[in-house]
Design a protein around this nucleic acid. Structure first.
Lengths: 243, 243
DNA sequence: CGTCTTGTGTGCGATAATCGCACTCAGCGT
DNA sequence: ACGCTGAGTGCGATTATCGCACACAAGACG
């Protein structure tokens, strides 16, 4: 099928790197850059390496690290290597807390009923979505696993397409979006994880509320109708809870 | 919405509040304080409320919020209310990634085999531990649920006691620690969540590695031996993987 | 065993980022 | 329509930050 244009680089390294735009606090920006730098280096960095990575003086990096450390956002392991700290888990726990708390049981039921990995994705900007939860089925020999936190373009992947399809039509939208609007769910192939298929439906949300989509990832979509029905049902169930 | 206002003062208000000590970057400190402030107010705050909360000028808070927003650590909902942003989920995903990836299947097996909520707790400082993962059993009508991210004193709760018990004896240690060292696991009652019982075992770790404990939370410990055996087995299994 | 190398931690003055005033703008209620 | 509350912006005085110079610790190597 003519869907060959999507492959690794396109989806893999979609890193929203923030550039020091005007009107930003330079010091805070540098501190946050340290966190992102550490996230890219799970095995830790030294103060000097951090300073190099940010292109700042070592003593500046040192001061910032000390500050992050005091807030438990950094940690220094056995020998001076710096890694992300446990305080981030606490902060992240509060992100979209209502939405995720309500979504968890629904995602678990969905994952189990179709024996595929289920996800909750939220819109993050005009052009991007971010995966917030990934629930794997309980007893399935083989299933797709990917990590939450990943960012994708809004117009790539079933979740983003579903969200676009839940909004007023726009002239230049992809045909998949138009189809999603008509069907009530979106399908994409290999746009997020190559060779896998995503099926998502938008979660009905109040005006101004967070836009979100629920979906599943499967290897083949031979019974697309059944999968889509389960996904649509889960999304509307979550929408009811949010009402 | 259901905001978890919990039980005893003993555990509830154990908030590691960071004070502007010397040698810290004031600007970065203020930015991080905003994140913590937002975590305490899940329904969002206005810029002015944030400025009041930090005791800084409104324009200062405004600049910091803009910076956090650019990094997706903040978000402005429908009408100017500010909440924590999805970028935190991505950052938190990298925290102790190895440990948690290896621990998840072990915790799931543990939770299912004893039909109780299982947890992974790591040492965070000289005096505190933080819950990193909480896995609930799959098919159990009633079980204990609590959120990861919580901080507790090292000498309170079975996990901290187990960690202390895995270290050289100290003269002034609690008798529970001595007992934990002898038995290979620790038991505490009502120290983290009142009226519930925790049973934890330290995860054997390399020198310099993160100190951690695995355990379960139950309502009664009539079959403590069986529970303890499962917990100890899970902890040593994780220790093997970390070797 | 001493020395050299590499990288961390600290004090302090010049500098540049931040702070906060004054002002404008947008939304809302009366 | 009007006033009011709170958000956002430009710009000069101030203050926190930056980065040099130095001291210190730990591992490498002869």
């Amino acid at each position: 099928m003519p869907r060959m244009r999507e492959l690794p680089a396109q989806t893999e390294n979609f890193d929203l790197r923030v550039e020091p735009d005007a009107g930003m606090s330079k010091t805070l920006h540098n501190g946050l850059e340290i966190l992102e730098l550490l996230a890219r280096n799970p095995h830790g960095l030294s103060v000097s390496e951090i300073a190099d990575g940010l292109a700042v003086h070592r003593t500046v990096a040192h001061r910032l690290v000390r500050t992050l450390e005091a807030h438990r956002l950094c940690r220094r392991d056995d020998h001076k290597r710096i890694t992300l700290g446990t305080g981030l888990v606490t902060l992240a726990e509060s992100v979209e807390q209502d939405l995720r708390t309500l979504a968890r049981p629904i995602l678990e039921d969905l994952a189990d009923s179709v024996e595929a990995t289920a996800h909750l994705v939220v819109r993050e900007s005009d052009t991007t979505v971010r995966a917030m939860m990934v629930i794997e089925p309980r007893r399935s020999d083989v299933h797709i696993a990917f990590r939450p936190g990943q960012v994708h373009p809004l117009d790539r992947g079933s979740a983003g397409l579903a969200i676009l399809g839940s909004m007023p039509p726009r002239p230049e939208e992809r045909p998949e979006v138009t189809r999603a609007r008509r069907m009530g769910y979106a399908v994409s192939t290999g746009e997020v994880v190559s060779t896998t298929i995503g099926i998502s439906a938008a979660v009905p949300s109040r005006a101004g509320g967070t836009q979100a989509a629920i979906g599943v990832s499967v290897f083949d979509a031979t019974d697309e109708p059944r999968l889509a029905a389960a996904v649509v049902s889960a999304a509307s169930a979550l929408g009811e809870l949010l009402r």
